[in-house]
């Protein structure tokens, strides 16, 4: 039995999979409430299927790229569960999860997820020698930069708002293909399938090795030296020399 957890973006998803069938799945728009909603959802998903966590011997977690803080919610939870139950844990790229349901189409596919600052995380998937898989590194770039690498018809999946879709149509014209809204979404059932495959015949990795695919380095320039105190208010600093 495999439990799959994904809190990579503002969308979250949890599924339970027995190796053949997705027994239960919940996908919701968590916005920033992943941490509050993840555990109640896990308990609900298990309850729907009448499965105890002790009966789960495999775990899959989405490792991004995505929201750094969001990704760490499910990864930390998965590490804790794996440590508690002894279940094997697999990390699967969130972009791979998005592309996976389109493998049968053999279409050149591009998974996209918003990366902030007007940029997107992206990866390309393509059929070659009868094998459809990821053929690019994980990229973070503007849509224009991403499209500069596209010369042929490409199916876009992932989180694309109207503006992004318009931009892609403008840049690529008829070469830009869009999956139907429901099949563009990320569902933990697919994560579960990929995680199951990943764990077949592979020896256990160290739990601490499962970490987010960061792609981007943290902005170290702006240090955050004052994490708890409220912002300074000079007018409250009675009896003190004024700041220069």
């Amino acid at each position: 039995m495999l439990l799959a957890l994904d809190t990579s973006t503002s969308w979250a998803s949890v599924a339970l999979f027995d190796g053949r069938t997705v027994l239960s799945e919940e996908t919701w728009h968590a916005q920033r409430r992943h941490a509050d909603e993840l555990f109640p959802t896990i308990e609900r998903i298990l309850g729907h299927s009448g499965v105890a966590l002790s009966g789960v011997d495999r775990l899959a977690v989405a490792t991004g790229p995505g929201s750094f803080t969001g990704l760490r919610v499910a990864i930390a939870a998965a590490q804790g569960i794996a440590r508690g139950t002894g279940a094997a844990l697999a990390g699967v790229s969130t972009l791979d999860v998005l592309a996976y349901p389109h493998a049968a189409s053999k279409q050149r596919t591009c998974s996209l997820l918003p990366a902030g600052r007007g940029e997107f995380y992206a990866a390309f998937y393509q059929d070659r020698n009868r094998s459809w898989k990821r053929r690019s590194p994980f990229i973070v770039a503007s849509l224009a930069e991403i499209c500069a690498q596209i010369g042929t018809h490409t199916l876009f999946v992932g989180e694309l708002d109207d503006a992004a879709e318009t931009t892609l149509r403008d840049l690529l014209g008829p070469k830009a293909l869009f999956a139907a809204p429901a099949s563009r979404m990320r569902r933990a059932g697919y994560l579960a399938e990929l995680g199951w495959l990943e764990l077949e015949g592979r020896k256990q990795t160290t739990l601490g090795e499962i970490e987010p695919i960061y792609v981007r380095q943290p902005a170290v320039g702006g240090t955050f030296a004052q994490p708890f105190a409220p912002p300074p208010r000079d007018d409250l600093a009675l009896g003190l020399p004024r700041r220069d």
Binding site: E43, S54, I81
Partner: peptide, 23 residues
């Protein structure tokens, strides 16, 4: 809490996972 949200989330979610898995 209180603390850095991203830092707190790591410990709290690991701990909740550990607790749920160990009843």
């Amino acid at each position: 809490g209180p603390g850095l949200i991203g830092a707190l989330l790591v410990g709290a979610n690991y701990g909740r996972g550990l607790a749920l898995a160990s009843s």
